[in-house]
């Protein structure tokens, strides 16, 4: 066994969500495995580890820097802890739709982000899609920014999310993910903001009434590889890995968009009241001062290019 294993490199991919067919993280990993097999056949053994089997997102990302994890599908906010420029992707109401986000990430801005992450020992193989984040709550549908007043939303422990609700006049409650379901159920908080796929996978429709399609943050999830694992591969395999990453990203984006459309219908069927916002521009205007305050942390050039490219 050992001699064979030496001859045939292994790539272990970890992510923290389920291995479900509809899971955006699982799709990215599976498509990468398929696309790589198309290109190199049996020459690389890709092993998949769902459900935190290789650890949480931060340890996965640190593991890639150490070379103890080969690959991972990681949420943007966690990447931003290692490379602050990635905070640009979490800026609220930056992208009007997925096409705008893909245009920015596939262009100059995306390249610049990837280069910065490479200096931290992590290779970015593609910007996949977790789906826009939406707001769900038990108080009222969020149609205008004023509807947020007095509604307690659980947010990620990140200054951007707290800042967004403050800018919009709402109330942000940073809370651990594991506490959130019970907190909504018992009313300690009124709601939370998450992508559609996560609402569905965690059965939030059982405890939350209103789904407001705020599209407030484009949830980027990246297909990342340890630079150490990357550099261990033969040059032709490295090229195949990059190609497979690009192909997998394209497939994942298409599938995620299809799923998102189906999910809205399915969540409505589970009893959620779905609404659109009246005027997305009103939300965007309210958060614009945030872009000033984050300019330093993210980098002025990135903020400028992203705003220009997003249009």
């Amino acid at each position: 066994g050992d001699a064979l294993a030496q001859a045939r490199p292994t790539i272990k991919i970890g992510w923290t969500t389920s291995d479900g067919a509809q899971d955006p993280y699982a799709m990215a990993a599976h498509y990468f495995k398929e696309e790589l097999a198309k290109r190199v056949g049996e020459r690389i053994d890709v092993q998949l580890f769902a459900n935190r089997a290789l650890g949480d997102e931060r340890p996965l990302l640190d593991g890639m820097r150490l070379g103890t994890v080969d690959m991972g599908v990681i949420t943007n906010a966690v990447i931003a802890q290692v490379e602050p420029a990635y905070q640009i992707n979490d800026m609220p109401f930056l992208f009007s739709d997925a096409a705008a986000a893909q245009r920015v990430l596939d262009g100059q801005v995306g390249q610049s982000l990837a280069q910065r992450l490479a200096t931290k020992g992590v290779v970015n193989l593609g910007y996949c899609e977790g789906g826009f984040r939406q707001m769900i709550n038990n108080t009222r549908p969020i149609v205008n920014p004023a509807d947020l007043r007095g509604v307690k939303f659980r947010v990620l422990q990140s200054p951007i999310y707290v800042g967004m609700y403050t800018a919009l006049g709402g109330t942000a409650v940073p809370m651990a993910w594991g506490e959130t379901f019970t907190a909504v159920q018992q009313g300690a908080i009124d709601g939370l903001e998450i992508p559609l796929a996560v609402i569905d996978a965690n059965k939030y429709y059982e405890v939350t009434k209103y789904l407001s399609m705020t599209n407030h943050i484009y949830s980027m999830i990246a297909l990342l590889m340890s630079k150490r694992s990357h550099d261990r591969l033969a040059p032709d395999l490295r090229a195949a890995v990059q190609e497979a990453g690009t192909a997998a990203t394209a497939r994942q984006r298409t599938a995620a968009a299809t799923n998102a459309r189906a999910l809205v219908g399915s969540l409505a069927q589970h009893g959620m009241t779905v609404n659109e916002v009246a005027d997305p521009a009103a939300f965007r205007r309210a958060v614009m001062p945030m872009y000033e305050s984050f300019r330093g942390a993210i980098g002025a050039d990135i903020v400028r290019d992203a705003l220009a490219a997003a249009g």
Binding site: G55, D56, P59, L66, G67, T68, G178
Partner: peptide, 19 residues
Amino acid sequence: DIEPAFLAQQLIAGSQSFS
């Protein structure tokens, strides 16, 4: 032949849980 820093990294990670 795994990077020895793994031991410390995972020990830290294992102690970082709110629950």
